[in-house]
Design a binder for these strands. Structure first.
Lengths: 107, 107
DNA sequence: CTGAATCCTATGCGATACTG
DNA sequence: CAGTATCGCATAGGATTCAG
């Protein structure tokens, strides 16, 4: 249970599946659109998501190699749930930032 | 935005606010009901949640000291959103565990 | 009881270099 | 192109000790 929530809380997980919302992307394309992610972390994140059945990894045997990642239906449902949380975050973002500033000021 | 999602993804955050869903708890009570949390992490988690306005910290000047923690309305809305995600996790928990096992087996 | 401060270890993760 | 392997630093976090 905690492992599942930890999955969602992971910074890169959300960003990766967010990029795959309605399209298929190659490794290099993901590397480009997920700003700031290292090759290492992208690989690891994709492996875990594949392992959990949230996305599929399709290898097209060609030269150069071509690997495409796409959300599964399970991954899509997770994205939808996570989107709700993102909506909460977006709604209260400024409020929280303000509180933080005030809290830090009163120390 | 990411900082907000990271907040939710944090292991202890969810467990702590979950315990405060419908009641006020003292530091020592939280320490007892949030299984496995160290004193250090409980303190830090509570500070951050207070800083972000998700809970209130009330000190009753007495001997021995008595400090009570309670969710704010903002904290309650977060808990509700997080609960939706927890519902997703609960629903698909077994499925994910199975997929993991199968994935690990085919290596 | 409710913390704050210190120490110490494990791990996370970026950077870099190498492979099919 | 799509990774794997290795190194090295920074940070997280547990254990312990001290304080109001």
């Amino acid at each position: 249970m905690l492992q599942i929530l930890t999955l969602v809380g992971d910074k890169w997980t959300i960003l990766v599946i967010g990029q795959l919302r309605d399209r298929t992307l190659r490794f290099s394309e993901l590397h480009r659109v997920v700003t700031g992610i290292s090759q290492r972390m992208l690989t690891r994140t994709l492996r875990q998501l594949e392992r959990d059945g949230l996305l599929t990894r399709t290898v097209h045997p060609s030269v150069p190699p071509r690997v495409e990642y796409a959300l599964t239906q399970l991954g899509t449902t997770l994205l939808e749930s996570a989107t709700m949380l993102a909506a909460w975050a977006a709604t209260h973002r400024q409020e929280i930032i303000d509180r933080r500033r005030r809290f830090d000021g009163t120390c």
